[in-house]
Simulated assay, not measured.
Amino acid sequence: MSDIAAVTPFEVQVPQSAIDDLRLRLSLTRWPDREIVEDWSQGVPLNAAKSLVDYWLNTYDWRRFEARLNSFPQFRTVIDGVGIYFIHVRSPHANAMPILLTHGWPGSVAEFLNVIERLSDPTKFGGNAEDAFHVVLPAIPGYGFSDKPTELGWNPARIARAWSVLMTDRLEYTHWVAQGGDWGSAITTALAGQAPKGLLAAHVNLPMVVPAELPENPNEEERKALEDIERYVSNMSGYANQMNTRPQTIGYALHDSPVALAMWMYEKFWEWTDNQGLPEDALSRDQMLDDISLYWFTGTGTSSARLYWEGVGSTIRSSDFFSSARSGVGRIQVPMGATIFPAETFQPPRAWAEAAWANLFYWNEVDKGGHFAAFEQPEIFAIEMWEAFRPFRSKR
């Protein structure tokens, strides 16, 4: 194996000077005036913003999260000229199945930390040894401790090809499965469309299946899905429209101001989780700030935004994120499955998935959770992985 193809161990070590700089910036925040509504309809309310920042400044402990990351085996390797960071946890159980988990935005590997052990050692959580996985958890290029691409073209299809190299060449797995949500869903869907050697099946928790021709007389399920799309495009896609078209412009705020970065992400934890009105109903402040701090200390607010420009904006220049589902890889032959979480932003009917996927092997609707499935509901997510991929263990 050449040096460029080597897999090398990695450890997270954020300099104390970077932590001190963050605290100084937080302490010097110039706050805007208060919103003129009594809810979140104009964005993150000032009181909620101040409360989160106060916690970040005076209570939150990055070193705790850093130590947790370092408790897992972490690595880096160069693929297609870009350094890729990944966590790789091998199961103690014989015949474990390799699983590739891909995060999205504003997520990171932090989304999956509470499911790693559930998947790799299910007997500790009421599962069976036969359901164990070897867990591979990479950071998308431009996110976390992966390199930031310096050339055009790092869209979901190219990332998917890099993931194939990671699984088959770098880690030498001969048979494996893949899962993703948000951008991870787009990447996993692209991966299934490419059908690389060894990929047995794929699963997503955001099925990006939109018919090329929308139904003129939709049934009840279709009408709800169309309403999801309309609500997203008309009232929820401002962040995406900015990143689809001008990621560099918003990037100055995201890179220079920790408060700007935090609110850009905190709003999505409110809007996309299964909560009763507050993000903290679904995720703890520590969980959210682990994720936000990971973006801050790696300086990836701008580079992560460019994935929207590459993945959606560079082809359609539209705020309709779901249009990317229609411009993909054709009817997918690799077995595909999905779990629908009740607070997900888009919940298509099963029939749309059957039309897009030639072999729909699993479809389930669960009763709790939202867009950040593994982050919000690690127990449910792990059980879904055990159940969904069980039929493919005998095919290896």
Rank of each mutant, 00 (worst) to 15 (best):
M1C: 12
I4D: 13
I4C: 04
A5S: 13
V7I: 14
Q13Y: 04
V14C: 10
I19E: 04
R23K: 15
R23N: 15
L26V: 13
T29G: 04
D33P: 01
R34V: 04
V37C: 13
W40A: 07
S41R: 15
S41T: 15
V44W: 01
P45M: 07
K50E: 11
L52I: 12
L52G: 01
L52P: 00
Y55E: 01
Y60I: 05
R68F: 05
F75Y: 15
T77C: 13
D80V: 03
V89W: 04
R90Q: 09
H93N: 13
A94R: 15
A96Y: 09
M97G: 06
L100K: 10
T102Q: 12
H103I: 09
P106R: 08
V109E: 01
A110K: 05
I116N: 05
E117C: 01
D121T: 12
D121L: 01
G127N: 02
N128P: 01
D131T: 01
V135F: 09
P149C: 09
T150S: 14
N155P: 02
N155V: 04
S164D: 13
D169W: 02
R170K: 15
E172R: 14
T174C: 04
T174M: 05
G180F: 05
D182L: 06
D182F: 06
S185K: 05
A186L: 15
L191N: 05
G193K: 05
Q194L: 13
P196F: 10
G198M: 09
G198A: 12
L199D: 05
L206Y: 02
L206S: 04
V210I: 15
A212D: 14
L214M: 14
P215R: 10
E216T: 14
N219C: 06
N219D: 14
L226R: 12
L226Y: 10
E227C: 07
D228A: 08
Y232K: 02
N235F: 14
M243G: 05
I250V: 15
A260W: 08
W264P: 00
Y266Q: 01
K268V: 00
K268E: 07
E271F: 01
D274P: 02
L278Y: 10
P279T: 00
P279W: 00
R285F: 08
L289G: 10
D290A: 15
D290E: 15
L294W: 09
Y295A: 08
W296L: 08
T298S: 13
S303R: 08
S304M: 09
A305N: 03
A305Q: 01
E310I: 00
E310K: 01
S314V: 06
F321H: 08
F322M: 13
A325G: 15
R326Y: 06
G328I: 08
G328L: 11
V329T: 12
V329A: 12
V334D: 00
A338C: 12
P342A: 07
Q347T: 13
R350A: 05
A351K: 11
W352H: 11
W357D: 09
A358R: 10
N364C: 06
G370K: 00
F375R: 06
E376L: 02
Q377G: 02
E384K: 06
E384V: 11
M385P: 02
W386Y: 14
A388N: 10
P391M: 01
K395H: 06
